[in-house]
Design a protein around this nucleic acid. Structure first.
Lengths: 234, 234
DNA sequence: GCTACACGTGACAAATTCGTCACCATTCGC
DNA sequence: GCGAATGGTGACGAATTTGTCACGTGTAGC
C-alpha cells in the first residue's frame, strides 16, 4: 500500500502506530532521533511522514524545515504530533506548514483516519505522456497531434477538443461535456459553436476526420477504428 | 520489475523460463491451458505475455485473437513461441500480429533478450496530470494554469512556455532549448521573440511573474520559491 | 411522405495572437 | 568608467482564431 515514516522517540508510540499501520497494509519505517529523519526519508522515499515535535537531536519543527528545504523530500506530506503544552502561536506555525497535526495523547484510530485522508489528498494522478491510437499520436507533453508521423497544426481550441475525445476513445462524449471541457460552459442553445469547431477539426484531419463520429442526439466520439470505404456493395 | 504471463502446457518450459525471468527480477504468472489465458491476463494485468502456439483448450492463435479483441488486454505485448513444424504462411500470419516470436527449441538467453527488447519498446511514459509548485497548479490534462485557484488565461504559446519551464523547476532552460520546445527552431539571432513572450507571460502572472527568473547569458528558469520583497535594507 | 429537429456548412467580422523591431535598461568585461 | 552584449519594453500590423448566424442537409418519428 503506502510506506510511512514514523518519527518518535517514545518506543511505545512507535510500536502502537506501527501496529495499526501494518494492520492496514502499510509499510512502516521508524526513527527516534531528529537528526536521522532526513537521511532516512531520502533513502526510503516514504509516502507520508508522521513527525513528533519533541525529539532528541533536533526538534520536529527543525526537521520539518529541513524536509521542506530539500528538493528530494519537500513533496512528502507530513503529519505532526504535538503535545498539549505547546503554545497557541506555535501550533499556528505548525499548522501553516504541516499537512495535518494531531495532539498527544491521540487515539490510534484518529491518526489512521488522518493518515488516510492525507494520503488520498496527495496521491499523484498520472496520465500517458504519449497516446497512440491507430495512426494518431497525441503527445500531451508537447501539446501536439500527429498522424502517421505528420504533425497536424491545431489551434488550442481544436487541441483541447481532440484531447478530450481521445482521452476516452470509442466512448460518447455529450455536447455539454465537450462544451464544459473546452469552453467552460455547458449550454449551447441556438449556437453552432461546437459544430463549427468539430468541422474545422475534421477538415484539418483530412481523411482521418472520419475518426470523429457523430451520434445524433447524444454527442461525438473518437473512433479507434473506422470502416474502410466500401468499394463494393456500398 | 515487470509481470510476465507465461503460457505453455510443457511444464519444463514453464519452469525454465520462469527461473530465468525471476532471476532477472520479474514476476511470473503461468497457465497451461488456452482457455485460461484471457481471464488470467485480465486478472493479473501482465506487462507482457509469452504465448505458445500448441495449447490444450484453444490454440495460441485463437488466444492471441481474443487478447487483441478485448479492450482490457489488447495493449499487452505478446511474444509467441512457435514450433519448427509450422508452415511459412502460418508463421507470417503470426508475425503480423505478435510483437515478436521465437521458434522452439530456443535458448532461454535468446528469449530473455527478446523479452527485454519488447518490454523496452512498450514502456509507457507517464507524467503528472497535475503539478503543484507553491501557489502554481499546472493542469496538463486540461491544458490550464491556475495560481491560488484562480485560472490564468494563457495563449497556447504562453502555455507551452510555462509548461516547459515547470517541467524542470529550478533548472536553467537555455534560450535555444525554449525556442526549440515552443517554436520548433533553436536560433533567434536578431530577434526578440522569446523575450517578448516571456514578458507577456510574466505580465499575465502578475506578482507571481517573479517566479520566472532570467540568468544572463544562460537562459530562464521557473523558481519554486522566490525571495520575499525586502522592505528593510533593500 | 412530411415535418420538425439536429447537425453540417460557408461566410463574416471582431477579437486575439504573434512576430518583429526600434529603443531602452542592465550587466559584464576590459 | 566605458562600450559591447544581452535582455526588457511598448507598439505596430499581419495573420490567425473565434464565435455567430443564415441556410442547407440529414435523420427520425409520425
Amino acid at each position: 500500500m503506502s510506506r510511512i515514516l514514523v518519527v518518535d522517540d517514545e518506543k511505545d508510540i512507535v510500536e502502537l502506530v506501527s501496529l495499526h499501520l501494518q494492520r492496514e497494509g502499510h509499510e512502516v519505517v521508524s526513527v527516534g532521533n531528529g537528526l536521522a529523519v532526513l537521511p532516512m526519508a531520502v533513502k526510503t522515499a516514504p509516502d507520508l511522514i508522521v513527525l513528533d515535535i519533541m525529539l532528541p537531536g533536533i526538534d520536529g519543527v527543525q526537521v520539518h524545515r529541513r524536509l521542506r528545504a530539500d528538493t528530494r523530500t519537500r513533496h512528502i506530506p507530513v503529519i505532526m504530533l504535538t503535545a498539549r503544552a505547546q503554545t497557541n502561536d506555535r501550533i499556528a506555525g505548525l499548522e501553516s506548514g504541516a499537512d495535518d497535526y494531531l495532539t498527544k495523547p491521540f487515539s490510534p484510530r484518529e491518526l489512521m483516519l488522518r493518515i488516510g485522508a492525507v494520503l488520498r489528498r496527495s496521491q499523484k494522478v498520472v496520465m500517458l505522456a504519449e497516446q497512440r491510437i491507430g495512426e494518431f499520436l497525441l503527445d500531451r507533453k508537447n501539446m501536439s497531434l500527429s498522424i502517421n508521423g505528420k504533425l497536424i497544426e491545431l489551434t488550442i481550441t481544436e487541441l483541447k477538443l481532440i484531447t478530450t475525445l481521445m482521452a476516452n476513445p470509442d466512448v460518447i462524449h455529450s455536447r455539454s461535456e465537450l462544451l464544459s471541457a473546452v469552453w467552460g460552459y455547458a449550454d449551447d442553445t441556438h449556437s453552432r459553436t461546437l459544430d463549427t469547431h468539430i468541422k474545422r477539426l475534421r477538415d484539418k484531419l483530412g481523411d482521418h476526420g472520419r475518426h470523429i463520429g457523430t451520434l445524433r442526439r447524444q454527442g461525438y466520439l473518437f473512433q479507434s477504428t473506422v470502416q474502410e470505404l466500401a468499394d463494393s456493395d456500398a
